[in-house]
């Protein structure tokens, strides 16, 4: 039976640090290369699938929590590899999960004068995504 899933229960972890309660939005994008393998005699292009690829980004509310806040947890990871665990339906046996190495490519803090400090992070997926459902 299909059911709509609300995003509010999404879990996002970098390594062992659960950042979920600081995250307002996240996007896990997977894609693949496409190769043109058209040969003479064809009237239309023919394509073949190539290597998988993907990116991840998230943003949220800045929190000064010393060791688990976004600044403390993410900023030192810029340019390095860390394991991303993403549970879009929340935690629970049989629920969806993606586990993949990512390279943190950017961390941005924004300070609009009329609102609270926010942050965002961009990352590049690296190697295969393990999308085996949770077995908690």
């Amino acid at each position: 039976m299909m059911a709509l899933i609300h995003s509010k229960n999404t879990i996002i972890k970098l390594g062992s640090v659960d950042l979920s309660t600081y995250v307002k939005s996240s996007e896990f994008a997977r894609k693949a290369d496409v190769h043109d393998v058209t040969t003479y005699g064809k009237a239309d292009h023919v394509y073949s699938g190539g290597l998988g690829d993907g990116t991840f980004k998230m943003d949220g509310v800045y929190d000064s929590t010393a060791t688990t806040g976004p600044r403390a947890a993410i900023e030192p990871l810029i340019g390095t590899e860390v394991v991303l665990t993403r549970q879009p339906e929340g935690t629970g046996s049989g629920k969806a999960q993606d586990v993949v190495d990512i390279i943190v490519t950017g961390y941005t803090e924004s300070s609009p004068v009329a609102d609270y400090v926010t942050w965002s992070m961009d990352a590049q997926l690296s190697d295969a995504v393990n999308s085996t459902a949770q077995s908690v």
Partner: peptide
């Protein structure tokens, strides 16, 4: 409610 995931804010 739910300014962030997991009843954060």
């Amino acid at each position: 409610y739910d300014e962030t995931y997991g009843r954060g804010v």
